[in-house]
Design a protein around this nucleic acid. Sequence first.
DNA 1: GCTTTTTTGATAATTCATTCACATAATTGT
DNA 2: ACAATTATGTGAATGAATTATCAAAAAAGC
Lengths: 210, 210
Amino acid sequence: MKAYKIPEATVMRLSIYSRYLKQLLDENVDTISSSEIAKGVGVSSAQVRKDLAYFGEFGTRGVGYKVGELYGHLMKILGLDRKWNIAIIGAGKLGSALALYEGFKERGFTVQGIYDVNAGIIGKELSGCTVEPLAKLANQIKEKQITLGVITVPASSAQDVTDILVKSGVEAILNFSPRVLKVPYGVVLRNVDLSVNIEVLSFNLAAKIQ
Amino acid sequence: MKAYKIPEATVMRLSIYSRYLKQLLDENVDTISSSEIAKGVGVSSAQVRKDLAYFGEFGTRGVGYKVGELYGHLMKILGLDRKWNIAIIGAGKLGSALALYEGFKERGFTVQGIYDVNAGIIGKELSGCTVEPLAKLANQIKEKQITLGVITVPASSAQDVTDILVKSGVEAILNFSPRVLKVPYGVVLRNVDLSVNIEVLSFNLAAKIQ
DNA sequence: GCTTTTTTGATAATTCATTCACATAATTGT
DNA sequence: ACAATTATGTGAATGAATTATCAAAAAAGC
């Protein structure tokens, strides 16, 4: 039962399910029920089934899901059955951390380039990539077929970097800067705000203490 | 009009509003309307007003909001009118990046300790903090009155670290490891999953291409 | 082969979040 | 003083997401 609009929360959970299934696969688990998945990742079993139902019927009634099979379906749905070339713009602490992050590599995201304006950083080696000057970004996006840009520059230059990425044909942007970015229709944008996360905790703490 | 349960999405937006207001404050803007805030952060003006309405009436009809005043209210609501002592557990790339992250410091989060088990990292300096062995964590949480723990260790040791944090009296945990953590009722837990974010992009890219 | 058990997939009910629409209040201009 | 304008605060309407429920299908037990 394919539906047009998939809730973002569903997609996020699919990513989590898939990682959990990978773990089960490594443990040679053959079959699993929606309620076991649910327990493993901390949601309800109805939620698991509902999420999967957006994309088809993957289980067998009375039995459950074949781990390997479901894992394959999820990887395909998430677009992780292929390699993605990514560029990281901003080789500060966060950019470097992401460049070295194993989690990306494991799931098929290859860091093809890291860029910065800071002369002190340019030329450094980071996981088989040399930090290049920002001026080279536009050309290398095309040369290296980079489809995904990760922005870890300060807020003040985030929009400029975005414009370069978009103009050079990048199709998706993961933005770690605390700035609302404008992208044309068709470019996928996702914002990750580290400050917001800790401030939600602070809010909850403050509310608890009152 | 104070309400009991505040949507998490509202709290996240309040954090974003507050940062935008700080910027306006630095630019000496005196007054602002909900629709200007909305435009600045990329939401609807009704959303801004509704979010604020959970906590009281901060504006003047026909006029808008005093920037400084609203900023003050938001900082208080978010619990950012005080200092929070935090500990970072896991001094790998991500932990180090977070330790050096200015965004935390600016908003009143002081890194009081960084911990790791890796002998090669222990003793290193990171923004005025020496990386300490994990064994010291429990005692230092009490000594340094740390209320907030940031977990950047691998998934395999995340629950162990959580248990130490909880037992030592930490009240909130920001978890960057891809593991579902168990905490007792009363401890605030928030998960940040970097992989999930890039995989949502991958999903959208894959869906677009089809 | 029939009954019982299990677990999916789908629909309905419920809860939660966002948007709409407008009365109300403040200000400005005449 | 009064009309016109602006922009808040809020209840109602809408929309979205989650949870509950249960018929249908597969398997296991007898």
